[in-house]
Design a binder for these strands. Structure first.
Length: 878
DNA sequence: GCCCTCACGC
DNA sequence: GACGTACGTGAGGGCG
């Protein structure tokens, strides 16, 4: 017989976590629901992941407990539970009842004690127990049969602790947790401990002596006069603290393990409560699971599977679906079409479409307007069938991205669900996923595509109105829509890559790597997989006994910053660093790129994702051509392989100089920063002068390096912690740099304040061209979430405006190239850089045009500056 | 198939 | 005082 699975939940703790992790949501009746919502998410996750046979949620009861007899001030000074949370507890109880989950509370005892008692009574070997809580104190309950799962961040991100993991994290056994607390105390429960003893000292002492009692017996042997004195003076307090921290396993509870038996819940009792609370998304989440809910009625849609194509279908305007199943549309076949317009909705099979010249002409007719979803995909797929798609009036994927970039809207179903009433099944539901993905029967396909087409036809007006309301119509029609076609063109052209050059570099790397591997294995005295952080960590920190500087949640960290700190301590380190660097080049850039070079043309066709990045930037996949190495020479050589596609042509690269800082100068109107750009100063030197209060000729290279990192931080919105990491200094020092920076650039400081205020006021921040990013967490009472939202509020207008500018330059540039009848082709964009190929005789002209177009893309109050270079490869164009 | 760590670019 | 900290994509290992 299998073991019983008992899940015990610390109800108060999880409710608190949920409350502080989520913004203060309320439902349409004005009742706060954030804690209930978070609690529900956690419950669903537990039921799904753990599938418990037994389950119970324990709550604290009343204000005083048996511990108050020991120590009257126990939990003293603790802030009162916010009323916004208190009022949610009745709903949490209702929720548990609806889920048919047992709940329990006991006068004079805390939830911990109920959990401790039940967990210990389940120690007969027939039970697997999991305890869910946000309170680290409960780690004392861990045994080989009992795991404690702590919430990490948000609600549903958790970390399970076994005996080994407690030991790994604290270096002590679970039952020594109470000894640790006895010495260090716990401010949140007002447990005093021994003054002056914190976590580090407590662990050290417990590791050495085993328990509080043993420590107190051995005070004489302990080094440090001050510590001795404190331990001596606070003996009783230490013992009492340990007692307070100890969870009882003998609470007089009136229910036994069998009473916690869990048999699942019924939608009929859960759904009405969800509805009352306004948990629409959870309703849908459960509703989407066919096992839990009978199929929801889809509204009727009249569509025709047509056998011939005629004018009735080819209306202006129409919604058009060009269906592809393969993710990479450069390779995808078209599986079928659907058209929806005022006359009706029609499914057209791909074979029928292929034979119809009328249909082809309609697709290519710029005057026949098409409403679409991801038009770039259709454009590229059709191009390979010899069809030039024209007349794209509206791309609802782009529109919904502009309306809210944080919604991930990968397919028509997502947008339909969010904005419309018409039900569209997800592609996964219709086609399956992974290895099982396949075309359904044709009538199913026909209905699916028809529903998509119909949804798009209806959604277009709705989305267009919303864009107008947001003053985003220009952004949509004049920037993102034309840009999608420019990107389609760039992707279709592709960039020529010399596979032979890559292969030669690969052979060379191979030789170096095998030598390094041999050396590393010899130095380690054993053969192991250097690419495995786990094995590498064991070799470095256990076998070779090097000091472990940092841990990840799964083991030792072996990242670059850790290894760099160990350089000089052992010969092996440097070799590992080089091995890593070269290994990355081999796998990601040599092998990775070779895999995607098109056999016939020798070109690489990336895909730019125009609807993903929260800031408005583009991203690039399959392959990512926006992270080709440049910083280190060994990697930079990869760029030798990127060459013009025709003899006599050159590669030309144009990049904006300091575009983000120029944008910052413009937005903030900071006089000091504007002056720096107007006088064409080196901005990092200028920053160093102001931050370190020195003259230009006193700026050392170290000062400039630090100033550059500060500017980097400003541009990317990193925290003092982030800056401290990148400079290898303390967080305090990093904080002081930032402070000094903001004093030197008061306009910037004011901008930062204003931007946060704007986000609080409107709920979003925006860029020069009205791109938006919503920041609901800006008002969160969770420090982390709020801080993150604040940094985002400061940073997104800067990065997003820079993205606006280069996108505008791309659209303008595409037009200029054709107006001037140049053969030059735009190939790539890397955030602040555009890459072209052109016949050598066009280079001079191209340089001139590129500079003009990029620098004049928008008018700022500081000049935009572009650096251009060209050569026989991307490497030479530096 | 999914998660984690690591590493590359801006 | 907590907590984990710019945005992306991709490779490899290790687990189920």
């Amino acid at each position: 017989m299998g073991k019983n699975k008992l899940v015990l939940v610390d109800g108060n703790s999880i409710a608190y976590r949920a409350f502080f992790a989520l913004p203060l949501l309320n439902n349409d009746k004005g009742v706060y629901t954030n804690a209930v919502y978070g609690f529900t998410q956690m419950l669903l996750k537990i039921l799904e992941d753990e599938k418990p046979s037994h389950m119970l949620v324990a709550f604290d009861a009343g204000k005083t407990t048996f511990r108050h007899k020991t120590f009257g001030e126990y939990k003293g000074g603790r802030q009162k539970t916010p009323p916004e949370l208190s009022e949610q507890f009745p709903f949490i109880r209702q929720l548990l009842d609806a889920f048919k989950i047992k709940r329990y509370e006991l006068e004079n005892y805390e939830a911990d004690d109920i959990i401790g008692t039940l967990a210990s009574s389940a120690a007969d070997g027939n039970w697997d127990v999991k305890v869910f809580t946000g309170d680290k104190d409960l780690l004392q309950l861990v045994t080989p049969d009992v795991e404690v799962v702590l919430t990490r961040k948000g609600i549903t991100e958790v970390e399970a602790y076994t005996v080994e993991q407690v030991n790994e994290r604290y270096g002590i056994t679970p039952d020594q947790i109470i000894d640790m607390k006895g010495l260090m105390g716990d401010p949140s429960d007002n447990i005093p401990g021994v003054p002056g003893v914190g976590e580090k000292t407590a662990i050290k002492l417990i590791k050495e002596y085993g328990s509080v009692e043993k420590v107190l017996e051995s005070i004489d042997q302990i080094s440090g006069a001050k510590l001795k004195e404190r331990l001596t003076e606070n003996k009783d307090q230490a013992l009492m603290s340990k007692e307070l921290a100890t969870i009882t396993k003998e609470a007089p509870i009136e229910l036994g393990l069998e009473d916690t038996n869990y048999e699942g819940y019924e939608n009929s009792s859960v759904f009405p409560l969800f509805k009352e609370l306004g948990f629409q998304s959870l309703l849908e989440r459960l509703g989407g699971d066919e096992e839990l809910l009978p199929e929801t009625e889809k509204e009727e849609l009249n569509f025709q599977m047509v056998s011939s194509i005629d004018a009735e279908m080819l209306q202006n305007p129409s919604a058009l679906i060009v269906e592809t199943l393969t993710e990479d549309y450069h390779k995808a076949d078209i599986q079928g079409y659907a058209i929806s317009n005022n006359n009706g909705t029609y499914y057209i099979s791909s074979s029928l479409a292929k034979g119809s010249n009328e249909f082809k002409e309609w697709l290519e007719d710029n005057n026949q307007k098409k409403r679409m979803f991801d038009a770039k995909r259709a454009h590229v797929a059709l191009k390979r069938q010899g069809i030039q798609l024209n007349g794209i009036e509206f791309d609802s994927q782009l529109a919904s991205y502009l309306l809210n970039p944080s919604e991930s809207l990968d397919e028509v179903a997502d947008v339909a669900k969010q904005y419309g009433k018409l039900t569209v099944d997800s592609n996964e539901k219709v086609y399956g996923k992974g290895a099982k993905k396949k075309l359904p029967e044709e009538d199913i396909l026909a209905e699916h595509l028809s529903r998509k087409a119909h949804a798009i036809f209806i959604l277009t007006d709705l989305l267009a109105d919303k864009l107008k309301e947001n003053e985003q119509s220009n952004l949509f029609y004049d920037l993102e829509m034309p840009l999608s076609l420019v990107l389609a063109k760039m992707e279709e052209i592709g960039v020529k890559v010399k596979a032979d050059t890559l292969r030669e570099m690969g052979t060379d790397l191979e030789a170096q790597l095998s030598m390094l591997e041999k050396d590393i294995h010899e130095l380690a005295g054993v053969s192991f997989n250097i690419n495995s952080p786990k094995q590498l960590g064991e070799i470095l920190f256990e076998k070779l006994n090097l000091p472990a500087i940092k841990k990840t949640k799964t083991g030792y960290s072996t990242s670059v910053d850790v290894l760099e700190k160990l350089e000089g301590k052992h010969e092996i380190i440097n070799k590992i660093l080089i091995y890593r660097q070269l290994g990355k080049l081999r796998s990601t850039y040599i092998e990775g790129l070779l895999k995607v070079v098109h056999e016939d043309t020798g070109r690489i066709h990336t895909r730019f994702n125009q609807v993903l990045a929260q800031t408005g930037r583009l991203s690039s996949i399959d392959p990512n051509l926006q992270n080709i190495p440049i910083r280190l020479e060994a990697g930079r050589k990869i760029r030798h392989a990127f060459v013009p596609s025709q003899p006599g042509w050159k590669i030309l690269a144009a990049d904006y100089s300091q575009i983000e800082l120029r944008v910052l100068a413009h937005i903030s109107q900071d006089e000091n920063l504007m002056e720096a750009f107007q006088s064409e100063m080196d901005v990092h030197t200028k920053t160093a002068m102001d931050v370190f209060h020195v003259n230009q000729d006193e700026v050392t290279s170290e000062m400039r390096r630090r100033a550059k990192a500060v500017n980097f931080g400003i541009v990317y919105g990193i925290s003092d912690y982030g800056l401290s990491q990148s400079l290898g200094i303390t967080r305090k020092e990093a904080g002081e740099f930032i402070k000094s920076y903001l004093e030197s650039f008061p306009g910037v400081q004011q901008y930062m304040k204003d931007s946060i205020a704007e986000a609080k006021q409107n709920g979003y921040v925006s860029t020069l061209l009205h791109r938006r990013r919503y920041l609901p967490e800006i008002n969160s009472r969770n420090f982390n979430l709020r801080s993150f939202a604040e940094r985002t509020a400061m940073n997104t207008p800067i990065q997003g405006t820079a993205a606006d500018i280069i996108k505008k330059a791309m659209v303008d540039m595409d037009k200029r190239l054709s107006d001037e009848n140049l053969e030059a082709k735009m190939l790539l964009t890397v955030h602040d850089e555009l890459i072209f190929e052109a016949p050598e005789q066009e280079i001079e002209k191209l340089k001139e045009i590129v500079c003009e177009v990029m620098e004049q893309a928008v008018q700022l109050d500081v000049p935009l500056k572009v650096d251009v270079s060209w050569g026989d490869s991307w490497y030479e164009a530096k």
